[in-house]
């Protein structure tokens, strides 16, 4: 990973973006996650949330009590300290998700990729995916990285309604729609797993750093 000099930049008056790498890589994502853990553990008061992504970490804070300049100098100190490989405090989970592969786009994906539907299912369900980050809607995890043979751009015409539990692919990513929302990914199948429930102790099934394996339900 090209670990360029980290850049701190204000994201408005209540957040800071710390850019740690110039281009995304598994290593960069892991480093961002470790740095996020170190920020959380540093005992800085008035932090709201620390959000790691591919190449950057965004830190939300209460600017009424913690001025930008003070937070910057705390972060600079942390950046100067040695990175500890064990800093990621979250224990990652390995999820097994049963999927009924009967999605409305399965045949089209097979046709577009020159594979049979069985081969599409086989390729999609044989890999172990990383939860890179969540977004779009609560509980929607961007999972990487699908087999290059399945790589397709998003659908030209996004659907107005994608049912909750739809398992879909786009570019080199796969994901599960937690709610009925609009969506432009190719739907391969469905799962009954509840991806997000705001009343559950752990609302989101997936967290950054987890791994996911899809299994074909018979």
């Amino acid at each position: 990973m090209s670990r360029a000099k980290p850049v701190l930049a204000a994201l408005g008056d209540s957040a800071i973006t710390v850019t740690l790498a110039e281009s995304p890589s598994r290593e960069a994502t892991a480093y961002a996650r470790r740095f996020a853990s170190r920020v959380r553990q540093a005992g800085i008061s008035h932090l709201e949330e620390v959000l790691p992504a591919y190449t950057a970490v965004t830190i939300f804070y209460d600017a009424l009590h913690l001025p930008f300049d003070d937070l910057c100098s705390r972060l600079q100190t942390l950046l100067g300290e040695e990175d500890s490989p064990s800093a990621d405090a979250n224990t990652p989970c390995c999820h097994r998700i049963r999927v009924v592969y009967d999605g409305p786009d399965l045949a089209d994906v097979a046709a577009a990729t020159g594979l049979t539907t069985d081969e599409v299912v086989q390729l999609h369900s044989s890999r172990i995916y990383d939860v890179d980050l969540l977004g779009f809607v609560p509980g929607f995890a961007y999972l990487s990285e699908i087999d290059a043979r399945l790589e397709l751009p998003r659908r030209a015409q996004p659907r107005q309604r994608v049912p909750a539990g739809s398992v879909a692919i786009a570019s080199r990513l796969t994901g599960i729609y937690p709610f009925e929302t609009p969506g432009g990914w190719h739907i391969l199948g469905r799962t009954v797993a509840v991806m997000f429930d705001p009343r559950r102790a752990e609302p989101s099934l997936f967290h950054p750093g987890d791994t996911v394996k899809f299994e074909r339900a018979q």
Binding site: L11, S23, P24, L51, Y54, L133
Partner: peptide, 10 residues
């Protein structure tokens, strides 16, 4: 760019 955290007002 690679996706990163955004906020209200961005």
């Amino acid at each position: 760019l690679p996706s990163e955290g955004v906020c209200e007002g961005a």
